[in-house]
């Protein structure tokens, strides 16, 4: 288990001074992931908030080698970097033992980059793919993605008078990745630093492709005050909206089990993106979201009990 003191005394690999909003969890996630890494890493990022706020030329927040190619292809780009590493290591042109980390937002991962990610895992590139999941396209102004939960207001699934935000359920990407039998897969969130750090280390030690879906609250898109980022992150876990679990060698394990499972309204009512649901003509949208969360949680309990 990592100690906070030891983590805090490391050389920073993701530096301050970048342009993220106050309270942005995406950048917190990036810093935590790099802090957790015990080996030298090479990083790739997909187009999106993290990339935009961290690399406005001539500045860079990245104190490790970093490449940004385009929006949908960070998994393919890092496949290439990792392939080059294997080729050049074989020839003795690289000596060090390196690790590779790809960062993509939910848009760059669940939607436009899903194919490239699937290919990267299927080809067994030893890359850790981190999806920092803020449940919408934030960089372009809060549009819905397939990670956006039902009920949420976004600019392309607006809270209207007839339709209360997004009406479809969100895609369960972690399960899609697990179906690829990666060397390691997990869900975590920044509010649980120890869970996150442990999972990153496990992923980087795993001999094959790994995937971590990090729930990353966005104060702008989710419409809450910046100082609530950690609280929102924790409530997602306490309500089972975002279960923390991992998958390894065919086995599921819930890594943080809430002492008492709170109703999702405690998570929803902190955020402006769900505000309209509390004024809606009936309680159906909230009820349906609660049922979905319950169903997925129950299934996870069963899978992890086996």
């Amino acid at each position: 288990m990592a100690s906070l003191k030891q983590l805090a005394s490391q050389k920073e690999k993701f530096l301050g001074g970048h342009r993220a909003c106050a309270g942005c969890a995406a950048t917190i996630a990036a810093r935590m992931v790099l802090t957790a890494a015990e080996q030298p890493v090479v990083v790739g990022a997909a187009t999106g908030c993290l990339e935009v706020v961290s690399t406005i030329y001539p500045f860079s927040a990245w104190n490790v080698p970093y490449v940004h190619n385009a929006f949908e292809n960070v998994a393919a780009t890092m496949s290439g970097v990792e392939a080059a590493y294997r080729a050049l290591k074989k020839k003795g042109m690289v000596e060090k033992d390196l690790r590779f980390i790809a960062f993509g937002g939910d848009g760059g991962t669940y939607d436009i980059g899903l194919q490239a990610l699937s290919g990267m895992i299927e080809r067994r590139h030893r890359v850790l793919y981190v999806c920092y999941n803020n449940e919408a396209y934030m960089n372009t102004g809060i549009q819905r993605s397939s990670a956006t939960p039902r009920g949420a207001h976004t600019t392309t699934s607006p809270a209207g008078t007839e339709i209360p935000g997004k009406i479809q359920i969100r895609k369960n990407l972690t399960e899609i990745i697990i179906a690829h039998e990666p060397a390691y897969a997990a869900q975590t969130t920044i509010g649980y630093w120890n869970d996150l750090v442990t999972k990153v280390r496990k992923a980087l030690d795993a001999d094959g492709p790994s995937f971590i879906n990090i729930y990353a609250p966005c104060r702008l898109g989710w419409a809450y005050v910046p100082e609530k980022t950690i609280k929102v992150s924790k409530l997602a876990v306490e309500t089972c909206v975002w279960p923390l679990y991992e998958y390894e060698n065919g086995k599921y394990k819930i890594t943080v089990k809430p002492k008492e499972k709170k109703p999702i309204t405690e998570f929803l009512n902190l955020q402006g993106r769900f505000g309209h649901l509390f004024k809606w003509r009936d309680d159906i949208p909230i009820k349906e979201y609660q049922e979905e969360v319950d169903m997925i949680w129950e299934r996870l309990l069963k899978r992890s009990a086996q």
């Binding site: 490449v67 190619n69 290439g80 392939a83 080059a84 042109m93 290919g119």
Partner: peptide, 20 residues
Amino acid sequence: VPAESEHSAISACVGASSAG
């Protein structure tokens, strides 16, 4: 790298070439 599309093939080329 037997990519899953040409988009990924050239993207992997970009990554590999960036790695020298």
